[in-house]
Nucleic acid binder design. Sequence first.
RNA 1: GGUCCCGUAGUUCAAUGGAUAGAAUAGGAGUUUCCUAAACUCUAGAUGCAAGUUCGAUUCUUGCCGGGACCA
Length: 594
Amino acid sequence: MSVVLKIKEVTAAAINGLYGISLVPGDVLVNATKPEFEGDYTVVLFAFIKQLKKSPDSLGQELGQQILAQNPNLFTAFNVIKGFLNLTVADQYWLQFVNEQSGNKDFGHAKLNGQKVMVEYSSPNTNKPLHLGHLRNNFLGRSIAEILKANGNEVIKTCIVNDRGIHICKSMIAWQLFGNGATPEITHTKGDHFVGDYYVKFNDEYKRQVEELKAKGKLEEEAEKTAPIMLATQQMLLDWEAGKPEVMELWRTMNSWVYAGFDTTYQRIGSDFDKTYYESNTYLLGKDLVETGLAKGVFYQKEDGSVWIDLTADGLDEKLVRRKDGTSVYITQDIGLAEQKQKEFNAGQSIYVVGDEQNYHFKVLKLICQKLGLPSADGIYHLSYGMVELPTGKMKSREGTVVDADDLVEEMVNIARQKTEELGKVKDFTSEELSELYDTIGLGALKFFLLRVDPKKKMVFNPEESIDFHGFTGPFIQYTHARIKSILRKSGSSLQSSVSSLQTSLLPLEKELSIHLEMFPSVLQDAANEHDPSKVAIYVFNLAKTFNSFYTEHSIANAESEEKKILRLQLSQLTANTIKTGMTVLGIKVPERM
RNA sequence: GGUCCCGUAGUUCAAUGGAUAGAAUAGGAGUUUCCUAAACUCUAGAUGCAAGUUCGAUUCUUGCCGGGACCA
């Protein structure tokens, strides 16, 4: 149990004992004590003074004495300032904690809790390569999955590939018109980029045809509807739905090129999935649920035959769930897929990592599922994340400002190589080791940059800042890890040789580091509860910073005494393990040397 | 038109209603005979505006200003 939880418990017990009320530990607010005051943790008393009709000072004094008297081994001192009760935790507590956990590689991991969670992320369209926004999505999804695992959940990672629809047909038509039989192999182009290029060609040609029609005197709206290339595309979509063999063949071929490209990127950035769904298989799902909804009176039919749900009582709109021609809409498919997943995996929670432009969509999705009484309903959670913008504004494909995922990764790795070469610290590495190190650093910088921000908020991606490897960055933390590993290698056996450093007392920086390490498990829990990897990123950064101060101030290998040396080696080892675990749940590797 | 989100140092980000609003970076001044200076230390700098609730508001409420998203 964490010391913060213990403080809440003993405080609640002390208040209940002194004043005969019944608080639970959750009623007690505990904060880290501000550095300018004496103490380690602070109980905020304001919440109780009204109920107990006592002055903050006398409450604090009585409570402090009671807590100390009842827990003589845990606390050594207290002081009261205004409504704040500052407690000093005994050095013994920290020493014992460090001693017990220093060799525990799984420090922070919780035991399996029997809960099952699905995390759906990435979910790309197959007409374009991945861009910066997809990277935020992938890193978030992957990371939240790892964080949930570390907290003892069984996690199933899924992806829904949007592999059908008008956008794919656009690439297909353009390839028929302009491709001359070209393939990714012939042109030496990565498959997803290859297909994406034809999507661009489609748009260029479409624009040209619209202009041509307008020049002939047609109105813009009419020109857009009647441009031959658009008509051909719409026909192709109909042919696809009818299963016309040559269309299906082309569709399969072009999608397979895209998948090959995606696989390369996923492998590079470390994304993987336990189960991939394809929209071409799922887009007909949910139709039977429309009938169910009508039978239950949850949906209603309009005169034209279209089916709706009225959500105005819930502060939302009326929402179409089936068109008058009988075809279903996105929301219906999503309901169907939610049920499909439920049947297949029966997870208690289903997390969707999807951009915040779909906030309304997911609100509606969950509400409809609830009204239909579906088993999947209450477990639906939309992990909504904000768009990634550039310093110049939003990314716009029309203006060519979209940051391509592959290009960006390549650039980050190149910069990692350049900086590493400048520093010249790893000249004895083989070329394989070097290339692995550059990947680790470059990708580490990129992932950390995108994960260090609260997912819910939109963020600005500044290319110049992202390539800075100083300060609040992945490489800063990786460097700290490498430095610790270097010390541990040199100290070799002295860590295992002795168990006890429990007789010593702690210097301020030793204590600060211990306190920081001790809170790691609760940070991981918090990150899982909030679905927020940035909590871990910020924590690991602060841990590294604290260690660096400690490292600069105190010698580890040449400590004042053998006891101190052991203590500091234990602290170093526990810090390295914690950094490694924290970075691993962010999907970031840490090197042994750099 | 309706619904929702966001405004914090020059910039990018923090802060379950709690003490003097924290970091990073950019700026200024320093640290290397000693475990990796991708480091460390010091310094300066911010809550859009106006009310309200509260012992206490960046946080909650309302209005305004500014930015964004979604729904027709």
